[in-house]
Write a protein that binds this DNA or RNA. Structure first.
Lengths: 212, 212
DNA sequence: ATAAAAAAGGTGCAAGTGCAACTTGTTAAT
DNA sequence: ATTAACAAGTTGCACTTGCACCTTTTTTAT
């Protein structure tokens, strides 16, 4: 798992900070990170702490778009779109490093080895995020809750090669991830259970149709 | 709009080809590109032509995941997930450049300026793709067809600042993009029309609730 | 230890959607 | 010019889902 400053020495990181003119901010629990930082085109890196990207709908509803842990990157070109109302909120005391995106793609900076290492790290991190987004899309494209669940199970199964999968968050969060109503999802899980497709024990789901 | 070889001279591109040990393949119309190229971890760039990424479902259904035009990039870490059955099919005579992903993130290559320019270009391209994926997710997260449509309109409106938006593909493709049933989408468009929210003329939709 | 809050689990019902099966209109092919 | 193929547009119906509103269980805070 690549991290932003992997393969860089302390002194290289300092040089990088100078080159990119980075800013480091610290936020308290529940404090707003963005759009406090007003820059249009930035990349942020969570140096420490935990934050969330929230989408604010026209009716005031807030949707958790992404969880930002240590070493996560975010920004106007990465996790956000031009056209949305969003908020990034610290969920602990959180330290954030902010970089101007234009400096990141500035050819002049490409002469510095430490810059290039950093760029390569970010490239790799974004690729991983990209993969995650594609997985989610593949699930959301399914029209029925049953198909979304089965697609999710299938993906997790292919990752672990186990016929038993562990849900790393609450069922409420799973419903949000699948973008379905929570109780409708429960109903469908019950159906799958009744039809002997799956077994559920707490957050562990065993796929009975897999024989490994 | 960044392209993969932007800011590189012909001779630099040749050096890059040598460094990365690239392979160039040409495919005929309707010929399979991937998984013909068997490598696990590659990045492909469409040098010329047009291709599509198709997802193959367990029931044999094929979903168009992405359109690949000239200068599009794709690959196991970019447009595809580990866990899916996919096919990439040329829709014209198509020339593809294939790079080993491991070479792309190999620190040794970072000493070459032309390599770094290339990496920066790819970084920028992926960021743009990432944004597109996030937009799509934001739409797919909406539970109702009406909300998906309105979200789509809103996004297109914010991009163009016009109260009239032009759908750049067929209504059938729009339904696929929103991941809803085509006729159910038509029904909802009719409702929006009847309620004087929108006007539809061919592929042009005018948002009557916007006053600009 | 107790209270409060959150998550899990469930159900009836109305509304929304997918699907099939049309018709009509448009585009492409011979 | 005529046919064939495809996109647009429509409708009835069955099924799924969201929603509101419960109860029970688990977790968290005091």
């Amino acid at each position: 798992m690549t991290t932003p400053f992997q393969d860089l020495t302390k002194s290289q990181i300092n040089k990088l900070y100078d080159l990119l003119g980075v800013h480091i901010y610290t936020f308290n629990d529940n404090q707003e990170i963005l759009p406090t930082i007003k820059n249009e085109n930035i990349i942020g890196i969570i140096l420490d702490g935990y934050a969330q990207i929230l989408n604010i709908e026209y009716n005031g509803n807030e949707i958790i778009t992404e969880n930002l842990y240590k070493n996560s990157i975010f920004g106007s070109n990465i996790s956000l779109t031009n056209s949305e109302n969003y908020q990034i909120i610290a969920r602990q005391e959180t330290t954030v490093l902010v970089i101007d995106y234009d400096k990141l793609i500035n050819p002049k900076n490409l002469v510095h080895n430490y810059f290039n290492i950093f760029l390569r790290n970010l490239f790799d991190i974004i690729n991983i995020k990209f993969k995650e987004k594609n997985e989610r899309i593949k699930i959301l494209e399914k029209k029925q809750i049953r198909d979304k669940l089965l697609e999710y199970f299938e993906m997790e199964h292919k990752k672990s090669r186990l016929k038993s999968i562990y849900i790393p968050f609450s069922f409420k969060d799973l419903a949000d991830y699948l973008a379905v109503n929570r109780s409708a999802m429960f109903r469908e899980l019950k159906h799958l259970k009744d039809e002997k497709f799956i077994e559920i024990k707490n957050r562990r789901i065993t796929l009975l149709y897999k024989n490994l």
